[in-house]
Simulated scan of single mutants.
Amino acid sequence: MIITLDGPAGSGKSTVARLLAERMSFRFLDTGAMYRAVALAVLKGAGDENDLEAVTKLVAACTIEFDGDRLLLNQDDVTAEIRSPEVTAVSSIIASNPGVRNRLVELQRAIGRRGSMVTEGRDQGTVVFPDAAHKFFVTANLEARARRRQRELAHKGVNQPITTVMDQLRQRDERDEQRAHAPMKPAENALVIDTSDLTIAQVVEMIAKKVSG
């Protein structure tokens, strides 16, 4: 069984997906980490994230694998490195590259063939796993998402005004929703969940009941 959770940054989908996977004893796939790995490869190679052809060639030559909770890029553990603000900025750009998306979709589907899984991203229910057993689109209003992201950044020692975080999320939403290839949107048969006024535990419980019911 495959369960997909799609949605914008700051909606809580990653945390919910991870906890849901633990609760159901399913594997968890963090597809955002895969895009971050490509972004890190671009930064390490001093490449131009806007050069579609060069980045497509780069991702084709990379190996991206999960080892438990660790993410390996060309056999190197980059789990911590991919969470930097610099990687975040580049990943939002390379995520619009069709060559990158096509390559990572291949890898994600290969992982999905290994057994039951909860996967989160922005196109999991629409493109990667259109036949998934259960699909959810997790969202929240912009201010709620910005405050969550602001807390995450503060925990990492990065302090940003709420207005700055809101602007960053708004720009990311526009890129994700307006890109020509695999834009972010709810799958036709996805259940949309607004988490603005819900706790993580409430969302996990809601989805778990829907899946088991």
Rank of each mutant, 00 (worst) to 15 (best):
Thr126Leu: 09
Lys135Val: 05
Leu104Thr: 06
Ala140Glu: 03
Val118Ser: 12
Leu107Pro: 05
Val165Tyr: 06
Arg145Gln: 07
Glu152Leu: 03
Leu104Cys: 05
Asp123Gly: 05
Arg151Cys: 04
Ala132Arg: 03
Asp167His: 08
Gly125Tyr: 06
Arg103Glu: 13
Lys156His: 14
Gly157Gln: 10
Ser96Leu: 12
Thr119Gly: 07
Val127Ala: 13
Arg148Asn: 03
Arg145Cys: 09
Gln124His: 06
Ala89Asn: 10
Gln160Trp: 15
Ala146Asp: 07
Thr88Asn: 13
Ser92Trp: 03
Met117Val: 10
Ala133Glu: 14
Arg114Ala: 13
Leu169Ala: 09
Leu104Glu: 04
Arg151Tyr: 10
Pro161Lys: 02
Gln108Trp: 03
Leu104Pro: 06
Gln178Val: 12
Arg172Trp: 01
Val128Leu: 08
Arg175Cys: 00
Glu120Phe: 02
Gln168Val: 00
His181Ala: 11
Glu174Gln: 13
Glu106Lys: 06
Ile94Asn: 03
Pro98Gly: 12
Ala154Asn: 01
Val90Tyr: 00
Met117Arg: 12
Met166Gly: 13
Phe136Ala: 14
Gly125Thr: 06
Leu142Gln: 06
Asn159Glu: 14
Val100Trp: 01
Arg147Thr: 09
Thr119Glu: 04
Gln171Val: 15
Val138His: 00
Thr126Phe: 11
Asn159Ser: 12
Thr88Tyr: 00
Pro98Gln: 08
Val100Pro: 02
Glu120Tyr: 00
Asn159Phe: 13
Ser96Ala: 15
Glu120Asn: 07
Phe137Ala: 08
Asp176Tyr: 01
Met166His: 06
Thr164Lys: 08
Arg145Val: 08
Asp176His: 04
Ala140Trp: 11
Met166Arg: 14
Ala132Glu: 01
Arg148Met: 05
Leu107His: 03
Ala133Lys: 12
Ala110Lys: 13
Arg170Asp: 12
Ala144Phe: 15
Asp173Arg: 04
Gln150Arg: 07
Leu107Phe: 00
Asn97Cys: 11
Arg170His: 11
Pro130Glu: 06
Val158Ala: 11
Asn141Gln: 09
Asp176Met: 05
Phe136Glu: 15
Arg101Glu: 05
Asn141Glu: 12
Arg149Phe: 00
Leu169Lys: 05
Ile111Tyr: 15
Phe136His: 15
Asp123Tyr: 07
